[in-house]
């Protein structure tokens, strides 16, 4: 199970990083979503991987799973969900305002007007 979880986190991070470095907003948004999935699973695994164990300490229970990472992941999921919604709306707004979906505001190869302004 360790191998499965670790390699899926690695795969998600790899795809997320690649997409994040693309020039258009849509892949960037998908990349961010993948990265946040990877982080959530990673955070979950930080309490060690155990199966079928109660997430709470009681008398007589010696084997348990750490409840804290689960609470942390819940917080992280809520925040990343909100953030994904925000960035989707923001990229649509940017597309409508600028007229293309490039992260730096101009299609590849177009003359640099931003460079003159900055």
């Amino acid at each position: 199970m360790e191998f499965l979880v670790a390699s899926s986190i690695g795969l998600l991070t790899m795809c997320g990083t690649y997409l994040l470095l693309r020039g258009r907003t849509f892949p960037v948004v998908v990349g961010l979503a993948m990265l946040s999935y990877a982080v959530n699973v990673f955070l979950f695994a930080m309490g060690r991987l155990t199966i079928n164990m109660p997430p709470i300490l009681r008398d007589g229970v010696t084997e348990y799973t750490d409840p804290l990472p689960q609470a942390l992941v819940l917080t992280a999921i809520v925040i990343s969900f909100g953030m994904t919604a925000l960035i989707v709306v923001l990229s649509i707004r940017t597309f409508l305002e600028i007229g293309n979906d490039h992260v730096d505001g101009r299609p590849a190869g177009a003359p640099s007007e931003a460079g003159d302004k900055n």
Binding site: L20, L35, L43, M46, P69, S80, L86, T94, I98
Partner: peptide
């Protein structure tokens, strides 16, 4: 909007890294 988009993306990536660091 263009500058804001870049700002948001960089900070979201930063937040992901924050969680990784805290988790470790």
């Amino acid at each position: 909007l263009k500058a804001g988009m870049q700002y948001v993306v960089i900070n979201l990536t930063g937040s992901s890294l924050f969680l990784v660091g805290v988790g470790m």
